[in-house]
């Protein structure tokens, strides 16, 4: 996890001769450089709206607003600019979803869901159909909030929707997509398990 590596190298004075980066910066870079050519036409008619969770560990605690901008640049290239809706507040001022810091594993479930009430409300206020979560803890927590507070919005990883917009997302790589996207742009549908 980005913060654990960066903060750990610093805190423990671990000598190293490599850079520590996060992939959201590179998704944007590869799209800008034309190495990846996502196409958002699949969503022109559908008009499915997406919002995103800025992960605290990557944005506020590591690279700041710049990487949050990169994340949005990549998302908009994939779902269409008009189909992205931001939460408020966001970027470095975003609320933690409550999945981090070990909260998902610590056993205080009732308190964790109470903690997430703010996040659920923020998401519902965007009226977005989908949430793109930037990390696994966010994904698991927001997925649970979606069920618990009955918003029932699907929560997905960015790689899923990026691969869909590149036209290469197969039928078995759609675990977290909602019914509305199960049949969209399916790559090699005959391989469905």
């Amino acid at each position: 996890m980005t913060f654990a590596v960066r903060a750990g190298l610093k805190k423990f004075n671990i000598e190293h001769n490599f850079e520590v980066k996060n992939i959201y910066e590179y998704y944007a870079k590869w799209i800008r450089e034309g190495k990846l050519k996502p196409n958002s036409d699949w969503n022109k008619e559908l008009g499915i709206k997406f919002t995103c969770q800025d992960p605290c560990q990557i944005v506020r605690k590591s690279y700041g607003d710049e990487i949050a901008k990169d994340f949005r640049y990549a998302i908009k290239a994939v779902v269409g600019e008009e189909n992205f809706v931001d939460m408020s507040p966001n970027f470095s001022n975003n609320y933690c979803c409550g999945g981090g810091g070990g909260f998902l594993q610590s056993g205080f479930k009732e308190e964790r869901l109470e903690y997430g009430r703010i996040k659920d409300r923020q998401i519902k206020e965007t009226k977005a159909d989908y949430v793109i979560a930037g990390c696994h803890n966010c994904h698991a927590q927001i997925h649970e909030l979606s069920k618990h507070y009955e918003g029932n919005y699907p929560v997905i990883h960015f790689w899923t929707i990026l691969a869909l917009s590149l036209g290469v997302l197969g039928p078995n790589e759609r675990t977290y997509l909602g019914d509305d996207l199960m049949e969209v742009n399916v790559f090699h549908p005959e391989t469905a398990m």
């Binding site: 996890m1 190293h16 490599f18 980066k21």
Partner: peptide, 25 residues
Amino acid sequence: AWKHVVQTQTDQTHKLKCKTYLNTE
């Protein structure tokens, strides 16, 4: 333990001579 984990990641990145440690999350 935190240090041990980061040290293991660091050692392997050095061993493979990779320029960038890329976090997927």
